[in-house]
Amino acid sequence: MKESTGQRRKERLDRGIKVRSEGLYALMSWRELSYLFFPRLVLIGGILILPLVVPSMYWQRVISIVCIYALLALSFDFLAHYVGLVSLGGAFFIGTGGYLAAILNTSFGLPPLLTIPIATLLGAFICTLLLFPCLPLRGVYFAIVTLMYPLLLARVIEALDILGGTDGILGIESFANRWVEQYFIILIVLFFLFGTRRLVNQDIGLVFRAVKDNDQSVRASGISITYYKTIAVFISSAIGCLAGAYLVHLYMWAGLSTFALDFSILPIAATVIGGAGTLVGPVLGAFILVPISELLRAFGTLRIVFYALILLAFIIFRSEGIMVYGQRKYHQFEKWIKV
């Protein structure tokens, strides 16, 4: 038996409809159109309906948190797999965006409708500025520096006792009601999901991907790689800061835990589970991982063990991730053939 499997290999053929729908859109019937639309509609519809079907307020809150992690995972996936910068900056972005929104709200009295956009843009500007020195470099420097800043900023706030010190900033305004709270972040996730998807296929997105693929060649094309890396980091940190600003309005509190490393690590795990480089995969990964982590809360400290086992199982058995696997099944026939 073992010998005969050694003689076979899996042959993969693109489905005809996949080939037709690529590039030239020669789709004739509703059935064929639905091939493209159906998966997207399921995703959009599924996410939009989620707050209505979950059993309790508690789980509605979980959805908001899922969306925060989904944004971080999206920002990680975009930087790592389309620009080639491995970022551990989730905590950095959340903390910067969060504290900015908190200051704008408590000290300047701006409503969330203003603090969130301002914190997003200003936060992204600050993050990009602080990360700029390591952008001309290749290698692990970017990852190290993004990991260093949240630790550094948290210690600075703690040691100098500024911005509320260890108590954090209290009394931040919350959203008008829970529906605004829910649908605001859900729409944001959908916007950035489809937005980044579109961006990476534009000409500028091709330049990002080229920087990842072969930066020397980009330089030889008369394009500054540092400039495009800066733009990409700005986009990515804006997504992260937006999530952070939303988070502090959700909790009505900004504290040192916004710099917690969970925000850096969990998005990476979500990307591994969901499928690296697919953009939608990491979002789905967050929708799987965060609720699991909530369910495992009952196991107390043991939950990290279960959590690690789930991750390990994924890395061993489906290292490509759910979305890559799913897309392949959707687009291709597979059969075993004798070699």
């Binding site: 091709l206 080229a210 980009v218």
Partner: peptide
Amino acid sequence: YYSLPAYKNLVIP
């Protein structure tokens, strides 16, 4: 750029 089709390679320059 190995991950891109030949003609997309030229879009970058």
